[in-house]
């Protein structure tokens, strides 16, 4: 088990390998489809992002509203591929890790290798369990997007698994290969 604290450095990522368990602590930022589209618009217009992306971690998540007295509602990962069109530019600008679930595009994997970033998997659907590791949540941009707004979360020991490391490894490919007993698929073609 490896412990990581944000913001992340290149050295932090050098020791990570596909399949490693990670406990992540510190500030991370939620962003989904609509927020990503706005972030990219800002960058193409040459304007500043609502947070400094250098060394940061984006969590693909849109939590449920918090019950009274709670920090946040349920907050599991959403499917990552929808953010693929926006991701390489964010990685180029200094984004060091993404938390989500599901497959990434070749372009994203290439950007992760070139600019040294990792993709960390959270367990999809374990939203109530994950919420217990979130200590603070603050809405920092795009309130009009509701669940899709950008929130700054402070997490403590968020359990993650390294899906893509900076060396080009891919846990989804490796894991499935290990347990596949059937040679039949669209993905192998």
């Amino acid at each position: 088990m490896k412990h990581l604290t944000t913001p992340l450095t290149a050295e932090d990522l050098e020791v990570l390998r596909v399949g490693d368990r990670v406990l992540l602590s510190g500030a991370i930022y939620t962003a989904r489809d609509a927020a990503h589209a706005r972030l990219i618009d800002l960058l193409t217009e040459g304007r500043n992002l609502p947070f400094n992306i250098e060394g940061q971690v984006i969590y693909y998540a849109g939590p449920t509203p918090e019950k009274p007295g709670k920090v946040i509602g349920s907050a599991g990962p959403t499917t990552s591929y929808r953010m693929d069109p926006y991701t390489p530019l964010l990685i180029e600008k200094g984004l060091k890790a993404m938390i989500g679930k599901g497959l990434r595009s070749q372009e994203v994997k290439e950007a992760m290798r070139q600019y040294k970033a990792v993709y960390l998997g959270a367990v999809g659907g374990a939203a109530a369990l994950i919420s217990e590791r979130i200590q603070a949540a603050e809405l920092i941009a795009y309130e009009d997007l509701g669940a899709e707004a950008i929130r700054r979360l402070v997490v403590k020991d968020f359990p993650l698994i390294v899906v893509n490391d900076i060396y080009g490894g891919d846990l989804y490919e490796e894991g499935v290969r290990q347990y596949r007993k059937k040679a039949k698929s669209g993905r192998e073609e």
């Binding site: 679930k101 998997g121 290969r177 596949r180 039949k184």
Partner: peptide
């Protein structure tokens, strides 16, 4: 038998 498994990380 496809090998995808829980969370897609490989398994039965």
């Amino acid at each position: 038998q496809l090998g995808i498994g829980p969370a897609g990380l490989g398994g039965t």
